[in-house]
């Protein structure tokens, strides 16, 4: 079990209060009618799935219900930091910067 810092509530809370919502910053084809089948497939189904740092969305389900970004190591499960949606996560080798944690 780990703790996550909610950038909206500005508090670190138990993992159980949150729900993971998958890889972050997957961009929907900007002109849907113009996107090829391959582009749709990539948007809908194909994922980065890295072994290492992963930028992902979490929702504070039992708190403010807001979605935010987390950078987390998928091997150690260590959390490098949280950011509000729209912020650009800055992760330096092992440590994190920003509104932290």
């Amino acid at each position: 079990m780990f703790q996550l810092y909610c950038p909206v509530c500005r508090e670190a809370r138990a993992e159980e209060e949150f729900r993971p919502k998958g890889e972050a910053r997957i961009i929907r084809p900007p002109v849907p009618e113009a996107a090829s089948d391959e582009e749709w497939a990539d948007y809908l189904y194909f994922r980065t799935n890295p072994k290492g740092l992963h930028t992902e969305q979490w929702v504070h389900a039992a708190g403010c219900r807001k979605i935010f970004l987390v950078v987390r190591d998928t091997v150690s499960h260590e959390v490098a930091g949280s950011w509000a949606l729209g912020e650009a996560p800055v992760v330096v080798e092992g440590a994190a910067e920003g509104d932290s944690r």
Binding site: E15, E16, P20, E56, T74, H77
Partner: peptide, 13 residues
């Protein structure tokens, strides 16, 4: 566990 993980362990909840 709902999150991605390569650690061969999951969460207590």
């Amino acid at each position: 566990d709902g999150y991605n993980g390569y650690g061969q362990r999951g969460s207590y909840p």
